[in-house]
Computed example of a mutant assay.
Amino acid sequence: MIRGLAVVVPAHQEELLLGDCLRSVGAALDASDVPLRERHVVVVADACTDRTASVARAAGAHVVAADHRNVGAARRTGAGHALRLVGRTDLDAVWLAVTDADTLVPRHWIAEQLRHARDCDAVVGTVAVRDWSSREPGSGQRFERVYPRDRGGTHPHVHGANLGVRASAYSDVGGFPPLPCSEDLALVTALEAAGYRVRRPLDLAVTTSARPDPRARGGFGDYLTRTLGAGGRPRPTLPRA
């Protein structure tokens, strides 16, 4: 049974979008069965010169200032800080959830992760884009064609914007590697290689931004910039990270 929980959000220059993200995270935490004293939200303000940190503090989050300029290192720092806040030695009873600062999680996000945690060690969900207005016309339709959501009752994607993992499994495989992108895929690959149970539910999606100024080169936002927004023929499959 999960007794301690933390949500980690890496953020770089995110003063405009972070507040909405944290409100959605707060609603998801309130809809869970985890007691208030046993749950935490950690925002890693990575190389920020704007109001990211103050927005996070105003929302009641713990803030870690860093200068990594690296999303993998930021997630790793946030997870380490979260585990110290939870303060439990029984890591089997601790759950780490991660999302991104430009993302909104549904109200059932935490509750569903914890339901799956009864018989798995990690939960990997999907993403949807809430607003295509900043992209070339037709981008949404092209995205739907190249983003398979059902392959035999599961899906092939890995997104740091929609991921949860048992702290014992996370620690056993070494956590997020400090990669500039695909750190989420590397973590899930390591979990699967170590024999941990990874669940990929089809009905657990978050909504994220299609903004043309993505923060991590090689990640989801950069994929949209390089392909769907370029007017050319999209790639047949979407990168898993």
Rank of each mutant, 00 (worst) to 15 (best):
A6C: 12
A6W: 01
V8K: 03
V8D: 04
V8P: 15
V8Q: 12
V9Q: 04
A11H: 02
Q13K: 10
Q13R: 15
E15I: 12
L17F: 04
L18S: 00
L22W: 10
A27H: 09
A28T: 00
A28Y: 14
S32Y: 09
S32K: 07
S32H: 05
V34W: 12
P35N: 07
R37V: 15
R37W: 04
R39H: 04
R39K: 15
V42L: 03
V44I: 13
V44R: 12
V44C: 07
A45D: 13
D46I: 12
C48Y: 07
T49C: 10
D50A: 09
D50G: 11
R51M: 03
T52K: 10
S54A: 13
S54M: 10
V55L: 14
A58Y: 00
G60Q: 12
A61W: 10
V63L: 13
V63N: 14
H68R: 03
R69H: 13
R69P: 05
R69G: 13
V71F: 00
A73S: 14
R75W: 02
R75N: 12
R76M: 03
T77Y: 15
T77K: 12
A79I: 11
A79E: 01
H81Q: 10
L83H: 01
L83C: 10
R84Y: 01
V86M: 06
V86I: 15
G87D: 11
R88K: 05
T89I: 05
D90L: 05
L91A: 04
L91P: 06
D92T: 10
D92I: 06
V98D: 00
V98K: 00
T99K: 05
D100S: 11
T103M: 02
L104D: 08
R107G: 00
E112L: 01
L114D: 08
R115V: 07
A117R: 09
C120M: 00
C120P: 04
V123E: 10
V124A: 01
V127N: 13
D131S: 01
W132C: 00
S134P: 03
